[in-house]
Amino acid sequence: MSASPCLLVLLGLGAAVLTGCGNPLMVKPGEHDEIGNAYRVDPQIEWSRQQDRKLQIWTVDGPLLEQLRLYAGIEDGDTLLPTPGRSISRQAWEQRPKYHKGMRAHDVVELVAATLAQSGAIDVGAERLRPAEFGGRAGFRFDLRFESDIGVRYRGLATGMITQDGRLHLILYMGAQPHYFDAYEAIIRRILSSVILL
């Protein structure tokens, strides 16, 4: 019995997967980093960054311990999982939870929870959905908690908005509950406050 490859991707154990996205670059504080062509954020501190199609993954200590995911312009039919490092079957692709135009904030909460659960996370909880600004526009925020297959408890924080033409911008932070989530939580909140829509 082996761990789901998706969990390795989602929780970052996928060094191979992330390597498939190209060598990581350093993101530096003060340099407002563009996420897609949708928004910019101030990184506050140095991060290691991997780029996927509509996603950037930032981490300091390694994605298995903490990671910040910045999605931009998620469209109808897109998945929140990174592009797989190797080809997957049509069936596996179809089983991935997907974003659909017309989804509202509570649907996005369920999408994130379903994505985590399908990836192998255990006891996924997504709660406290509430209104929050995203780059000065009306958006939403919610909290996450789950456990990985090796028994590490994680906390998460998500914020996002749905544009007038139905695309999703989403920022998702997940960190191991002992130490790592707390270590970066204040920084993450400052990053979330620094969003500037383009």
């Binding site: 154990l13 060094a15 191979a16 992330l18 991060w47 290691s48 200590d61 590490v152 191991a176 130490h179």
Partner: peptide
């Protein structure tokens, strides 16, 4: 958590060079 940290150390320090991922931070 030790398991997760050890996995991270194996990935970024001990994996064979051709398979080792970079972590600039």
């Amino acid at each position: 958590l030790h398991e997760a940290v050890l996995q991270t150390i194996l990935t970024y320090r001990y994996a064979p060079p051709q398979q080792r991922a970079a972590l600039p931070t």
